[in-house]
């Protein structure tokens, strides 16, 4: 019935869908969405890895700092955080790096520091880092302690113990959760539309605001989200297969 309706119900308005599906505006909006996802993922996971290693370090200070960060950024709704970064110029007009009460070395105005896109990337990445940190930490502690002990007993240097022995095995459990995060970040970028950034969802809203064809334009966005999520899932499959070497399942 539903499939039949999709084809026959004029409400879906497929001609309008095809009219906009592969237009320049949509492509450039899609590109912004992809950029937000890539930057958010890369920065988020790099910062997340740092936070995870801080939480796993033996220094109580680093542990508390990392715990505090994760607590804060998991507590604040993403949309609130994004609006905050968008409006930071309202709070602090200028930022500078220097000695407190001493000379200033670098100085910039917050308005120029990050444009809307920069603010969006920052917000997404900081938010993502808190979740990525816990996923990475979970992956690392899931690796059998005997592996690290054997590496230590063989005298393998510390950094190499981590990158050659622990991390590849941690990746097994980091990847499925990590892929979840990337995909949810990809769709989560639509939240950035509140900052009037011309990403996919915002652009679609702008168009249906003009021509009132809400449903077909939402379908344009939906289909693109599905297409790219499918691509990500395929990538996930191959990456996971690579890290599954030497395991039974």
């Amino acid at each position: 019935m539903f499939v039949h309706g999709l084809a026959t119900n004029p409400g879906w308005d497929w001609p309008t869908f095809f009219q906009f599906f592969a237009t320049r505006t949509i492509f450039s909006a899609l590109w912004v969405t992809v950029q937000l996802t890539v930057y958010g993922t890369v920065l988020g996971f790099v910062l997340g890895a740092v936070l995870a290693s801080m939480r796993l370090s033996s220094s109580p200070f680093l542990q508390v700092v990392a715990w505090g960060y994760i607590w804060a950024f998991r507590s604040i709704p993403l949309i609130v955080q994004l609006l905050f970064w968008f409006n930071i110029a309202y709070l602090y007009k200028e930022l500078s790096i220097g000695v407190p009460f001493g000379p200033e070395f670098v100085h910039f105005s917050t308005n120029n520091l990050f444009g809307p896109l920069g603010a969006a990337v920052l917000g997404l990445a900081l938010h993502q880092a808190a979740y990525a940190a816990e996923i990475i930490r979970g992956g690392i502690i899931s690796v059998d302690a005997g592996q690290l002990e054997a590496a230590a007993a063989l005298g393998i240097p510390r950094i190499r113990q981590f990158f050659r022995i622990v991390l590849p095995q941690a990746m097994r459990s980091i990847l499925p959760n990590g892929a979840n995060e990337v995909i949810s970040l990809f769709k989560g970028t639509s939240i950035v539309s509140v900052m009037a950034i011309p990403e996919l969802f915002y652009q679609v809203q702008v168009i249906y605001g003009r021509n009132s064809r809400v449903v077909p334009l939402l379908m344009v966005a939906t289909v693109w989200y599905i297409v790219l999520t499918t691509l990500l899932s395929i990538v996930q499959y191959y990456v996971e297969r690579r890290f599954a070497r030497g395991t039974a399942r």
């Binding site: 005997g146 592996q147 054997a150 022995i165 590849p168 095995q169 070497r245 030497g246 395991t247």
Partner: peptide
């Protein structure tokens, strides 16, 4: 428990 590196 041997502790061989399983991914190598």
């Amino acid at each position: 428990t041997f502790n061989l590196f399983g991914h190598l």
